[in-house]
Nucleic acid binder design. Structure first.
Lengths: 193, 193
DNA sequence: GCTAAAATGTGATAATTGTCACAGTAAAAA
DNA sequence: TTTTTACTGTGACAATTATCACATTTTAGC
């Protein structure tokens, strides 16, 4: 159950067996069924979550009632509303399971406590955040490009997830309507994939 | 000269005087005149920079030759191309001074070395990155909204910088053309600010 | 497997934003 | 100051993407 996370950690830092056990002991396993929520808007997001199995989407409901997906979370990803987590303010996001999912969760206070005695653990989270950050930086750039480029970029990076996601979620992630995405897909199919 | 940074650190963590001196000794002051570059595309970004005075913009030149501003950096902000910094790959960004500026820079290897003996320093950078991350998360959300909302949001957050930035840079940051921004400004002026 | 619900495809049309051209204005350099 | 250069405003028009309506297909629950 902790193997995935253990490997993920080992890819970035070396933790002693003891430190790793201390960390794992602080994690709480969470199971979600499809459509269940990890976070609902209005709640304060006090946990960070590592996805073991399944997948989730993080989205905002705008003032017209439209859902806007800003992020997905699949196996090997940490996911949280970093803003609410950091500031303690109520979240404007929902995080919902797209499939039956399994995650490990840890709350901020516990984690901050662990950082004091296990600096390497903070190093791990720092490195992970740097990677996530680099990903968001790229996402901003892509969101400024035309819809077709955004879609092709998505396929290049997350093509393997395309069947697991609905068109409307992909469209929302790309910042377009599901109708527009449908038309883009026709175009790109005609030109050969 | 180091007062700004010293205060910035104190806002997030407590560093011993010795640790702080060790860190400051590793920083290199950099002066830039308006239009000079801190980073040019094709170079690997090996430094992180803390802005003491002045301001910079980080932008990409797209395949049509258009400049796309993804980020600004003003007093009290750390700025770098996190992707290039992290992966060691050549940057696709330029970071250019908008005004005569003063910064403090540190390279990644030196910083990683410091982290080993000064865990609190890594805590500081980790916290700063969390804040920056929360800011980018919001930026993604805003970029999905109509142009007028983006502009008003910009004014709310960075209204105090509006006179120091050119229209074309603001427009680019908002992901619209300078012509569109000009029209948005007319509209919002007619409705009273 | 059947049925209801959800998701997707597609046409007609509207809204938003971009492009191009050029005039006017402001700012930098000589 | 003067002169050049860069920046901004505005009109006409084009391109992109959204919206709405409804048909079709797929999926989930019984």
């Amino acid at each position: 159950m902790y193997d995935l996370l253990s490997n993920h950690i080992a890819r970035h830092v070396t933790l002693s067996e003891l430190d790793q056990q201390t960390f794992f002991a602080a994690l709480k396993p969470v199971k979600l069924r499809r459509h269940q929520y990890l976070l609902q808007e209005g709640m304060v997001c006090r946990h960070d979550h590592f996805v073991i199995k399944g997948g989730v989407r993080q989205y905002e409901v705008d003032n017209k009632g439209h859902e806007k997906v800003i992020h997905f979370g699949f196996q090997d990803w940490w996911i949280t509303d970093r803003y609410s987590w950091l500031t303690g303010s109520p979240s404007i996001y929902n995080i919902q399971a797209l499939e039956d999912s399994e995650l490990l969760q840890i709350d901020k206070d516990t984690l901050d406590q662990l950082f004091i005695n296990i600096p390497r653990l903070e190093r791990y989270f720092h490195i992970v955040l740097q990677h996530t950050f680099a990903y968001w930086q790229e996402r901003i750039l892509v969101l400024q490009k035309p819809a077709m480029e955004r879609y092709l970029h998505f396929r290049k990076l997350y093509g393997h997830l395309e069947q697991r996601l609905s068109q409307q979620h992909i469209a929302s992630y790309l910042g377009i309507t599901r109708e527009s995405l449908s038309r883009l897909r026709n175009q790109s199919a005609q030109r050969g994939s």
